[in-house]
Nucleic acid binder design. Structure first.
Lengths: 204, 204, 204, 204
DNA sequence: CATGAATGAGCTTTCATTCAT
DNA sequence: AATGAATGAAAGCTCATTCAT
């Protein structure tokens, strides 16, 4: 029944998907939907929560604990791309629809996002510590720098996931996408740690 | 009058924003809205077009022509973040709402996005050429690599712009966001050019 | 200006014809229409009155006074068919549109119709008197009989006029239509006068 | 529910009768009307079809098969007048409203009318054959003459029915109206068959 | 005298939501 | 537990009508 909701909401949008459609898609009668999920808003919330939980769970399960930080990040990204590719409706629901319809829903996915960003932040911090052990003149990163990188990384990942779900099959595989992203992000991190970050020095 | 449309659509979504609301917000009567913009769909299209044009214009104006490629990219990003921060409703309209409601609108912003991605692609290619002049053992980038980088960069920028418009003031300034992104992407470009990309195989 | 009204009302119907259409058709601005004819209802009424007057005038002018009654009737019918064929919009306005939209307008054309029916009634009565002078055993007609014939005659004439205006050119000419009608009506009158009317005698 | 539609449409006209009015008249809520009859147009069509079928059925039932042709015609006319007098709204719907509002509806009643005209045509032809058996020097009628007579007869009948439905009680009864019409038309037929038609040339 | 600009009111249609069964 | 039947409320759109110029 939630399946029907996710699918309908993802494909038609919250307003366009009617409760009739959803009930029919689920193969049950409309009042039954109301019995289990009190209202359209509640149904939408329930769908979002389920998809958010599924996504977080998938990413968590994909992460190779006890591996080096970069490897953990890479495996997490792989898991993320694999899950969004396998559940395009769920991803659309979270990343497109939930954001489109005001506060209660947007907050719901914002919470999930924060969770992921924090996880990435910790990985980056761990990587920085690892790096510090190995390299001599490593500098310490400010919190905002780490957080900035994490946000950018997550943002780029979301973008790639959107692009993959655009319907054109034959795009990059989940692991390829993850590798592409690591190429950019990890290099940036390394440079930053060695004091070779990019800066608009030429400005007054 | 378009202002009212942009604001209402951005905040309530296309379906939820009623023509009554928009008319009231614009301080005019509903029939007047229909007199100037023939239908709700036309109004939506007009809003999207205006905001897309404004954004592209702003970015174009911000780019420092004749500067080195990285500097051009940075100034363009700064302009982008400055504009989206100053016009959060316009940005939401383009990036969230227009994508949510079917083909005609999505195509409109897809065109704008393509324009920007191509611009970034050219900058990256130019940077690669500059780099080739300076560094000895620079390798040539494949077209897909450049394009991949451009997409990731634009995607990350969009994400950061979203975050900035979330309403929580005190986020990073436009220039800081641009610098973060440069750090994220430019280093990746450099590493790629020197054949030092990240790859999962290196790890256990 | 009334021309435009007649045409628009006849072709689109009272509700479908908008004041915008009419003003544009008349080549003037809408407020001007309101200046001369206070409202849409007044405009409609004015159109009906004009067309009714024109029709009655045309029929009156066509009647050959001082001729025998049958000849008068025939010439009147000819005039009627000629006028309705030449002014199909006017005829539609009177016979279709005015009847469709409630009391005030329906009454207007009912008055005109009454006038015509009375005229026909008098002609029939005159014919009866003429007949009485010529034929020996003529019987006197009851008022209801005369009136019934007049009504039927006028009704049949209206029907033929409708059929003629249906757009298929090449129908019978006005004079032919009038002759056809005379064939039926006058014979019926003659038979009645000679006591050879049709009656359901066989019923109990 | 169709009753309400017929009544509202007949009295107010298609455009003037609002779905609110109809729903209220039917004692149900507006959405229910839309549930059963999909749109105003469909409701109108359904009303027309029902009334047309009812009228045709009533006329068919009234005709005394196996009686002589004139008797059949008379009984059919009686049935027609009786039905229209008993269902004035239905008659108005068919004869006034359906004709006023464009092709799909007009066609619907045109079909019914054709059916009736053809029935009358056959009766007249049968009468001519009967007449030929009895009278010696009967001439054969051309098809156009028969058809013209049928059209005129039906047209006159329609007109008389309109008059009866005008609301003024005390008009002629159904049988009287039928007799009047028979007098009007049957005599014409007889004269025609005997070559004694009326023609303008006979006069001065 | 004539009009461009503006609106109040109403119409058709849809949909989330609820009872009686 | 499950549903067919019904509705209140609202939305997009149109049009007769009026001022300020």
């Amino acid at each position: 029944m939630l399946d029907a909701g996710v699918r309908a909401f993802a494909r038609s949008g919250y307003r366009n998907a009617s409760m009739d459609d959803i009930a029919e898609l689920a193969g049950v009668s409309k009042p039954l939907v109301y019995l289990y999920l009190n209202s359209k808003e509640d149904l939408f919330t329930a769908c979002i929560r389920r998809e958010a939980a599924a996504l977080v769970t998938a990413v968590r399960a994909a992460v190779e604990r006890d591996a080096p930080a970069d490897r953990q990040l890479w495996s997490g990204l792989s898991g993320f791309f694999a899950h969004t590719a396998e559940h395009p409706d769920g991803w659309t629901l979270l990343h497109v629809q939930a954001r489109t319809h005001g506060q209660p829903y947007a907050r719901e996915v914002a919470a999930m996002r924060t969770e992921i960003v924090e996880f990435v932040t910790q990985l980056i911090a761990a990587a920085a510590r690892e790096h510090a052990r190995e390299a001599a003149r490593a500098r310490t990163l400010a919190g905002t720098e780490v957080s900035g990188l994490a946000h950018a990384l997550v943002g780029a990942a979301e973008s790639l996931a959107d692009r993959a779900g655009d319907g054109r099959a034959g795009g990059p595989s989940a692991k390829e996408a993850a590798a592409t992203l690591m190429n950019f992000a990890w290099a940036g991190l390394g440079n930053l740690l060695q004091g070779r970050g990019w800066a608009p020095e030429r400005i007054g």
